[in-house]
Structure formats: C-alpha cells, structure tokens
Design a protein around this nucleic acid. Structure first.
Lengths: 130, 130
DNA sequence: CCTTGCCTTGACGCTGACGACAAGGTTTAG
DNA sequence: CTAAACCTTGTCGTCAGCGTCAAGGCAAGG
C-alpha cells in the first residue's frame, strides 16, 4: 500500500507518516518509481504510535514499543524497555495529577475569596441591609 | 527602580520584563536617558503575573488580573473579569484532571497486562514449576 | 582614557509534532 | 494531449515564553 492509503487507514496524514520515517519510527520499502510502499505490519505500528502519542507520549518514548511490535510481539507493551517507559510515564502522570490537584485547590480558594469579597463590598439585594 | 533591580526583586529576568511590556502587561516610565523606571506597584504586578503563569495561565488570561490590581484593588482576583477567568480556568483544570485520570487508568492497565504477560511467558523461579 | 556594569533595541533559537506550500515526476483515464 | 490524482523532496510557519547573543549608548570610578 502507498502512503496515501496508509494515512487514510491509520487516520492520519501523509506528512505525519513522512515525519515518523524521518525520525526513524517507520521503514517503508520503495517501489521502482521511488514511492513508499508499506505492508500491513506498518499499519499496526502507526496505530501504536498514534495511540501512545494521544496519551501524551513523545516520539522518543514510543520507540521501544515500535521495536517491540517489530520483534514479533502481539503487543508493543510486553518488552522490558516498554515496561520501563510505562512505569516512568505512569509516575509522571501521577506527579502531574498531584500538581494539578494543588493548582485546582488554589484556584478554588482564590475564586471563593473573590466571591466573598464581592459579597462584602457590594452586597446583593436580598442579603442583609435594605 | 531600574529593570535589573526589578528583575532581581521579582525573581525573573530583564528579558522577561521587556517581554511583558511588549505584550502590554507592564508600563514603566522612562528616564531621560531612555532607561525603564519602575515603581513599587509594578513589582506587585509582576509578582501577580508570575504567580498566575506558574499556575498554568497564559499571558492573555493574566491581563484582567493586572488591570484589577492597577485599578487600585488589594487583590487582582476581585474584579468581575478576573472571576470569569478563574471560573474558566478552574473548569479547564477539572477537565484536564478527568482526562489525565483516564490516561493514568489506561497506563496502569497496560502496565498490569504487560507484567502479567511476562509472568506467563517467563515465569519467576519461585512461581509454579521447578 | 579606559574599564566595568548598567541599560537600549533587534533578531534568531528553542521545543514538538506536525500543517501548508512549492516545484516537480508518474500513472491512468478520457 | 491533457487533466486528474497520485507521489517525491525541501522549506517555512505554528504556538509560548522566554534564552541568548549582537552591537551599541550611558554613567561612574580610577
């Protein structure tokens, strides 16, 4: 299959596929006229890449998973390097969740105080004094 | 106070202060020789900006808070526009927390399956068979 | 006069994953 | 013959908040 078909089947663009290739994630054959030719395996690889990128991975994080798939495994997750990345990413996500939770708390506090301030300085009609 | 002093007192760089000015967030006076001259109020403004950026706001989000401070309020939070931004940002954070939680869940699942797969295909010494 | 240490504007670099366009070759259909 | 619809490489643009020179002016001390 050519690049256009793969792009459509993988739900991405030809530009993206060439980008992945330039970064060493995909290795298509070339036909006589220089066109990139992909097989079904590459489709699975591209879908793996996309799935991981959607979850917040970078291209470098994705490499072990691609290698794992290419090594013949049914899933890109099962190789040691992939597991390492999964652990690291999970830790990163946990850390970010913590920070974001703290931020949420702070925003909530700020908002609460701001509202309280408004009630103080410009009381609503039905509040206390007429 | 000149730009270097403000930068140090605010814990940032002169480049950053000029950047804020270029984006209309800070308006220093100019001395005869063309140097930027800031007063104490600008220090508070810059600190407000920094605090909000640290929490994940963009420069555009910060504008209402700066205007609020400049309007004479003790806090940049208490003006209506600031409250709107606070509400919006809180909602954004909540949404992102949800997504990130889902991602965490997925990563956890992938990791669990990968580990289980390893136990299957290459059992530990003390597992089952000798 | 010279150095040191401020300050000025201007302009390019960076990160990441592409989008958009240019200028051209190939193949197929009419 | 030509248009349509593929494909190729190459290059620049995008978003945000700055970092990092470059080239030069101004002030003060020795």
């Amino acid at each position: 299959m050519l690049i256009g078909e793969l792009a459509e089947r993988a739900g991405t663009s030809t530009r993206t596929l060439r980008y992945y290739e330039a970064h060493g994630l995909v290795h298509p054959q070339r036909s006589a006229n220089g066109y990139r030719v992909y097989d079904e395996a590459e489709l699975r690889v591209v879908r793996e890449i996309r799935a991981l990128l959607d979850v917040g991975f970078g291209l470098d994080d994705v490499r072990p998973f691609v290698a794992c798939l290419r090594a013949g495994n049914a899933s890109g997750d099962v190789c040691p390097d992939s597991v390492l990345v999964l652990r690291r990413k999970l830790a990163e996500v946990d850390e970010y969740l913590d920070r974001l939770g703290a931020v949420r708390q702070q925003l909530h506090t700020q908002l609460t105080h701001a509202i309280a301030h408004r009630e103080e300085t410009c009381p609503r009609r039905r509040a206390s004094a007429p």
